[in-house]
Design a protein around this nucleic acid. Structure first.
Length: 337
DNA sequence: TGGGTTCGCGGAAACTTTGC
DNA sequence: GCAAAGTTTCCGCGAACCCA
């Protein structure tokens, strides 16, 4: 299996830069300060869809009328950068409404995992999991799971964010407390998102391995999570891109069978542009001959000549193994492992 | 040893085809 | 047009395997 992407390192690379002097934010009240939009940076590798069209216009109109009511949440990094954890849309629409600055809450001393967790939690609080696109769900679950695995779920952090974002809403504490019960394991995570563990595993895998071009097709409901999961076994990004390109240009649909074939051809190093087209057009319907040794069936009549019905499969295999070793020893033939 | 991954299989639902 | 039969697709379960 290919090595998983190490996002923390990617992120560290992104942070390598010469820090510029920042203008100190203006204090307002209750930990909220005013800050220039130009000093804020988007969260690196931000996967959540930002408002466009009517949603963008509606929020811009609202900000023009009432201003930005809920402060943005920023991460002040050790190298003096201000990265948006929550509020990308408010920043963008605020700018469109003619504002140059907005209210923010600044968080310090966060690890990357903390920051990811906050990005996910705040997005989940603004809209439900079921409202998210497929790619957002996959990203959300993958990052959530990774953050949980690396440090355990930071319920203290989540509660603090909840307090900062909903200071007047006591109900919110109940919600968060309920969520905080679901911590620690894959099954608890599945429970929290009301998914089966199988579905959760598929989303996590898709979030980790399915690249943008196919993820966009997934978002367009051109295939299901099962198909996306199968396609995620094609670890070569270029091959994934090629599949997506053919789907785009020729309107090919990928169902479970075709996804299985694409995966099989990839795993046998036989996935070329030609085979991709042949699979997508339905011209190829059979899996390639596997490079792995295939299991051999021995007829019951042969088995019964040498073994009793009481003997287990393991015992039978051991005897056959020893017998073959003796056979090839006497033959003087090469025995390949 | 426990948790995670993969694979194959089966059930349920959706869809298509066929016969009347 | 409708019902029955057949086929396909999707999802979940369980077993085997892997790995730290």
């Amino acid at each position: 299996m290919a090595k998983p992407r190490v996002l923390v390192e990617d992120f560290a690379d992104m942070l390598k830069f010469e820090p510029e002097p920042k203008i100190a934010p203006t204090p307002v009240q209750g930990g909220i300060v005013e800050m220039d939009f130009d000093l804020m940076e988007s969260f690196p590798n931000h996967k959540f869809k930002l408002y466009q069209g009517k949603q963008f216009d509606d929020m811009t109109d609202s900000i023009r009328l009432y201003g930005i009511l809920q402060p943005l949440l920023l991460w002040h990094t050790e190298d003096d950068r201000y990265i948006i954890l929550s509020g990308h849309n408010r920043r963008n629409c605020g700018k469109a409404a003619g504002l140059t600055k907005g209210p923010v809450i600044i968080k310090e001393n966060l690890t990357y995992e903390d920051a990811v967790l906050i990005v996910i939690e705040t997005n989940l609080r603004q809209r439900s999991f079921s409202d998210m696109s497929q790619s957002e769900r996959a990203y959300c679950l993958f990052e959530h799971y990774k953050a949980m695995k690396s440090q355990g779920r930071r319920n203290d952090l989540i509660l603090e964010i909840e307090r900062l974002m909903n200071p007047q809403d006591s109900e919110a504490f109940t919600t968060s407390a309920e969520i905080s019960k679901s911590s620690g394991s894959r099954s608890k995570l599945a429970e929290q998102y009301t998914l089966t563990e199988d579905m959760l595993a598929k989303y996590i895998r898709v979030g980790e391995y399915l690249d943008t071009p196919l993820m966009e097709k997934f978002d367009d409901n051109q295939f299901t999570i099962s198909v996306a999961n199968t396609l995620s076994f094609i670890l070569d990004k270029e091959k994934q891109q090629t599949v997506a390109s053919f789907m785009e240009s020729d309107n090919y649909k990928v169902d479970g069978t075709k996804a299985d074939l694409l995966r099989s051809y990839y795993e046998n190093n036989k996935l070329t542009d030609t085979t991709i087209v042949q699979i997508l057009t339905g011209e190829k319907t059979r899996k390639p001959k596997s490079n792995k040794p295939q299991p051999v069936k021995i007829k019951p009549a042969v088995i019964s000549k040498y073994f009793t019905p009481q003997q287990t499969q393991k015992e039978i295999e051991d005897v056959i193994d020893k017998a073959l070793a003796l056979y090839f020893e006497n033959q003087g033939s090469e025995v390949t492992a």
